[in-house]
Design a protein around this nucleic acid. Structure first.
Lengths: 209, 209
DNA sequence: GTACGTACCGAACGTTCGTTATGTACTTTT
DNA sequence: AAAAGTACATAACGAACGTTCGGTACGTAC
């Protein structure tokens, strides 16, 4: 009775087109017609694979989370995990632009806001063991890991936003320097030096900036 | 020849209505009709005081910046300045929601992105003397003040975003605790204690959380 | 009192949006 | 061969959008 084409594969095609539109124009530019035009088909096809625009948005956010996850190496220490989240590569810039752009709709629609809340909690949960590990090696001070995790997530995402709007000031080298300097500053005085981040006291003279 | 009404005052009325719409529905919900409905007038009136929707958006962002500035006491130390930017009051929550919501359009339209970039630079410039002051009192480590400013701005705005999506987890008390703990962790080992932030090592048992 | 400019309404303009309905080409099952 | 179901294109729907425009009410200036 049924099919001819690979439904799952075609759905991924649509998903990819959605992502291209998002990367180019953000959520305010995400329309069914833009997605259809991107892949050279009709809006009817798009709605054949996604029942509504809302489903398209939810799916796009899932893709964004998956891409973010894929950005971080399977086995990583804290510095690596945080550095991967910074907009230090074209791919990372694209993903972060989509994230930041999504916050508008996420704040406007409670359901999407709840999804974003859950995503943040997942991110912090993934960071948590890395923070605890850094605490045991003396790279981070003792104290409530939850506080440290929230603070490091905040630091990272705050840098992301500033970098997206001011890529000249916050280039790749400077972002990584800021991260290292921050981790270094957090290291307790009695911590053994240099396990997860180089000790940075004074920035080198010719550093990016 | 000319006028009867107070043009400037009426313009502020429109501006206030714009703000109410933004606070309620974000930038994705900002339409001329919504603004007009908010103040019970026609869209014609709105366009009488603002030539286009774009002008309305630009003006709204200026208002947001001014409100942010007004939030911070005239004379303040670093902790006070950063604490004021956190969503710890209904007013601050409202402002921050508008800010985060604006990033979607700001990323999509280069002109608005440039304005946002300039605003971030102004914010960091306002933070800078406070950071330098904290360095001289030994509350912050020596090193490039630009790095510390960017890091503290990042930390603060990163907390803002997490708090907006998860106000239960990031209530007023916890936000202030996180800020204090962060400033405390940054204090160099030879720094005299307690000038700009209480020394927080272990969170009190019954703290907000 | 006449002329003129501002303030504003009400309605409509053309566009674009998400969504739906209709029809056709093609495959697979019976 | 007939039946059925998937995979689309095409076209249209109604709603909402930013913007424009004609008209009216009301001042002030002459």
């Amino acid at each position: 009775m049924p099919a001819k084409t690979d439904h799952e594969a075609r759905r991924r095609d649509v998903s990819a087109a959605v992502w291209k539109v998002l990367a180019a124009d953000g959520f305010s530019g995400l329309t069914l017609r833009a997605v259809a035009a991107e892949m050279g088909v009709s809006t009817g096809l798009v709605m054949h694979y996604f029942p509504s625009k809302h489903a398209l948005i939810v799916h796009a956010l899932e893709v964004a989370e998956e891409r973010t996850r894929a950005l971080i190496p399977e086995v990583a220490d804290l510095r690596t995990a945080l550095a991967a989240a910074l907009p230090v590569s074209p791919e990372a810039i694209e993903i972060n632009r989509v994230w930041v752009s999504s916050w508008d709709v996420a704040l406007a629609e409670p359901e999407l806001g709840a999804l974003e809340q859950a995503r943040y909690r997942r991110w912090r949960a993934r960071l948590r063991p890395l923070v605890i590990e850094a605490q045991t090696t003396g790279d981070l001070p003792t104290g409530d890991p939850s506080d440290l995790v929230a603070g490091l997530a905040a630091f990272t995402h705050g840098l992301v936003v500033q970098a997206l709007f001011d890529p000249r000031t916050f280039g790749r080298k400077r972002l990584l320097h800021l991260l290292d300097a921050h981790l270094s500053a957090l290291r307790p005085p009695d911590g053994r030096p240099g396990t997860i981040a180089p000790r940075v006291q004074k920035p080198r003279a010719g550093a990016s900036r």
